[in-house]
């Protein structure tokens, strides 16, 4: 712990207020663009049916990544591995639970009398 900052942190970790503000601003702009794109797609009826759902899902996925990176500061740095692993494992469990539930319920629904 022979770092020069009072917090005992390396300068890279400490960052600068300007840099971090920039990161929040980038996050905000990206989020606005992605949100705007999603809503515009629906308002203007640019796509319909499955294609629309797929694009909307993709936009949402990208926006989640933007939020995780810019607002929640999750990145690939070594120091954040525990949290990243936790999030990835959660994503796996969520995938199993949600896709399994939807699969089961839709399958049952198809087999029911109308």
């Amino acid at each position: 712990m022979n770092d020069e900052t009072p917090a005992g942190m390396p300068a890279s970790e400490y960052g600068s207020e300007f840099g971090e503000r920039l990161s929040y601003l980038i996050g905000l702009v990206l989020a606005l663009v992605l949100t705007g794109a999603a809503f515009t797609l629906v308002w203007m009826k640019l796509l319909t049916g499955g294609a629309a759902l797929a694009v909307l899902g993709l936009l949402a996925f990208i926006q989640v990544l933007v939020h995780l990176r810019c607002f929640l500061h999750i990145d690939l740095a070594r120091s954040h591995r525990d949290d990243l692993k936790l999030i990835l494992f959660t994503a796996l469990i969520l995938l199993v639970m949600v896709s399994g539930t939807i699969w089961i319920l839709y399958d049952q629904h198809l087999r029911m009398m109308p």
């Binding site: 770092d3 900052t5 917090a7 005992g8 942190m9 500061h73 070594r78 120091s79 954040h80 949290d83």
Partner: peptide
């Protein structure tokens, strides 16, 4: 300690 810094927002000038 420096390697294990949490993400999110950190504490600033503390020990």
């Amino acid at each position: 300690v420096s390697e294990r810094l949490h993400p999110g927002v950190n504490l600033g000038a503390t020990d």
